[in-house]
């Protein structure tokens, strides 16, 4: 019984460590991704799957519409499709200004 309890607590510890490592890895990975709402055309053009034209269109969309809130919005841009969006998830993250603070 004692041995089982010891095994269980070690397993739990391992699981917790794995989760923590996974979370830290995810955070670190996120920090390496480009924020679509602050990236320049030059930065976006270097992202695998994008080119100069698409990069310009993304920035143009962003300038016209305000911060991008979800990757699906990019489907409005000619040349973007779901497969490309899927690929972009590896390199792009979304952090936007909420714009919701209004004190009027």
């Amino acid at each position: 019984m004692k041995r089982l309890a010891s095994l269980l607590s070690r397993a739990t510890l391992c699981l917790l460590l794995c989760l923590a490592l996974g979370a830290a890895t995810a955070v670190a990975a996120d920090q390496e991704k480009l924020n679509i709402n602050t990236a320049t055309v030059e930065q976006l053009a270097k992202v695998p799957g994008l080119n100069e034209t698409l990069a310009q269109e993304i920035v143009k969309y962003r300038e016209e519409m305000g911060d991008i809130k979800a990757m699906d919005e990019l489907l409005e841009i000619k040349g973007m499709d779901k497969a490309l969006l899927e690929k972009l998830q590896e390199s792009i993250m979304i952090e936007g200004v909420s714009g919701s603070d209004c004190t009027c």
Binding site: D101, C102, C104
Partner: peptide
């Protein structure tokens, strides 16, 4: 706010 001071408040 979008036509007022939302930039400041944000």
């Amino acid at each position: 706010g979008e036509t007022c001071i939302s930039s400041a408040s944000n």
